[in-house]
């Protein structure tokens, strides 16, 4: 059975090992403490709820990215998919009743993800290449269907979504609740469901998985399709927040999602990573942006800081694996 925290701490060098093992959580806690000291505004409910709203969209696609990365793949198409699906949702919600619009958008996301999944799993295309192609296609299509300008919500359904996305329940923004639910679902799937176990097995040794009688292709296909469906969920959320779908949404989000997953300790070779750590990765990235905003640091230096943090997070994991 798993060692208890107490046992881990009492073993030789235990505290250091413990800190290294749970480094993502500690970085997160340190950042929160640091932020609270450095800015009076940080611990206000307005700021925290803004922070959560900002990270929810990227957070949701990060979970999809985690599933793909666990199999040893990568999905570069998710940012562009958010743009295309946000535009499609805005168009659909203006035509159909809300549940139909949501369902169609999710199905469309699943379908687009399936294309990457098919190319990777059954045509043996490199994930980087397949999803890079899809990224370009999706971005182009988002401009075609929106005719280059944002599509505004005009119906009651759109109004309802807008209200939902901008309100809170028990002080927590609704869209953050959606994000947390997805994180919890991913956690449960990865720990207690065959699907999660098998994608981790595939990522840690694809050949051994095949020779264990695992349907490797099916699961590889599925993770991309799910990543697409999660991109659709993120698209609905970000479109609803601003009451419109724009082809400029989700720019470079795939990179933030990869960064969040990597900061969360996942290995790009696959087989290693957890949903809770990806959540931490998302929050760490969001926090850095948030605190730098509060300190009035302009956006270009922010990018530099983000990059440096990613390097340190990964270096720390190297230390862990030793």
């Amino acid at each position: 059975m798993a060692l208890t925290i107490k046992q881990q701490l009492s073993s030789p060098g235990g505290i250091l090992k413990f800190l290294v093992k749970y480094n993502t959580i500690f970085i997160f806690i340190l950042l929160v403490i640091f932020s609270a000291f450095i800015s009076d505004v940080f611990f206000t409910s307005v700021n925290l709820s803004n922070l959560l709203k900002q990270v929810s969209g990227i957070g949701i696609i990060s979970i999809g990215m985690l599933l793909v990365i666990l199999t040893g793949g990568i999905d570069l198409s998710v940012g562009s998919m958010v743009a295309l699906l946000a535009v499609m949702f805005a168009i659909l919600v203006n035509i159909f009743i809300l549940p139909v619009a949501i369902l169609f958008t999710l199905l469309l996301g699943f379908g687009l993800g399936s294309i990457s999944g098919y190319l990777v799993a059954y045509q043996k295309m490199a994930p980087f290449v397949a999803t890079l192609a899809l990224m370009t296609v999706a971005r182009g299509m988002s401009f075609i269907y929106s005719k280059g300008s944002p599509v505004t919500f005009t119906t009651v359904g759109g109004q309802f979504m807008s209200n939902f996305a901008n309100n809170s329940t028990l002080g927590i923004p609704n869209i953050a609740i959606v994000f947390f639910i997805i994180v919890i679902m991913a956690m449960v799937m990865l720990r207690y469901n065959v699907f999660g176990r098998l994608i981790i097995a595939i990522g840690s040794n694809e050949e051994a998985s095949r020779l264990s009688g695992i349907k490797v292709n099916k699961y590889k296909f599925l993770v991309y399709a799910i990543s697409g469906a999660l991109a659709a969920t993120a698209a609905i959320i970000v479109a609803s927040r601003t009451n419109l779908g724009s082809p400029n949404m989700g720019m470079a989000w795939e990179l933030d999602a990869i960064a969040a997953v990597v900061i969360g300790g996942a290995s790009l070779n696959g087989g290693k990573g957890t949903a809770i750590n990806t959540l931490m990765g998302v929050l760490i990235l969001g926090l850095i942006g948030n605190i730098l905003n509060l300190l009035n640091v302009p956006s270009y230096p922010q990018q530099v800081v983000k990059g440096v943090i990613i390097i340190f997070a990964v270096l720390l994991q190297k230390f862990e694996s030793k």
């Binding site: 981790i200 097995a201 840690s204 040794n205 050949e207 051994a208 020779l211 087989g271």
Partner: peptide, 9 residues
Amino acid sequence: KEEGVFLPL
């Protein structure tokens, strides 16, 4: 190592 077990698991 390559085909039998999942070393990191």
